[in-house]
């Protein structure tokens, strides 16, 4: 991952915490932006999927948060940063099926403990840090060049 690479696009999108009023709005915007930049649809779709799951997590658990989108000629970098309860046991949270979701989150069609593993599976690089009572930071990179697919 070349962090010094030219950033051709950068934007920060605020995400409302503990509310589903606008859940998914950032993902819709991110996908439209990437398509406008002529990024192949398969790549744009994966970026939208990981953005959406990250957004749902902020809407579900955080007090407030933001999603930062950066695009270089070779990579799409998505960071989700929130302030809120944080995750006590990241290893457990990463396992499919582990969940602390409430009824409200279930009713939206989420909360089954798939979000973090979906984000990891659909990105080429995935990194999570969290502090209980402070918040969670996620960084995901999706390679634009097809030949990089599957690289971890």
């Amino acid at each position: 991952m070349n962090s010094h690479e030219t950033v051709v696009y950068e934007n920060t999108f605020p995400v409302e915490g503990k509310s589903f009023n606008n859940a998914g709005q950032v993902s819709t915007q991110v996908k439209a932006l990437l398509q406008k930049m002529k990024i192949p649809i398969k790549i744009a779709r994966r970026a939208a999927i990981v953005t959406y799951e990250a957004e749902i997590n902020i809407c579900s658990y955080a007090d407030h948060g933001k999603i930062i989108l950066r695009v270089t000629p070779e990579e799409i970098i998505i960071e989700a940063i929130d302030e809120g309860q944080g995750i006590a046991d990241i290893e457990a949270a990463m396992e499919e099926g582990f969940s602390t979701a409430t009824e409200r989150i279930w009713r939206m069609g989420f909360g089954a403990g798939m979000g973090l593993s979906n984000m990891r599976n659909f990105s080429d690089y995935f990194h999570i840090t969290s502090e209980v009572g402070k918040g969670t930071r996620l960084k995901m990179i999706i390679c634009i060049d097809d030949k990089h697919l599957g690289k971890q």
Partner: peptide
Amino acid sequence: LMSDVLAFAKAGSLLLTGLTNPQIVR
């Protein structure tokens, strides 16, 4: 379960679901 839809559904398909909230559209 929308997370399962995200994990497995493919572009151009129909989505059959019993949910009615805006997340099915997102």
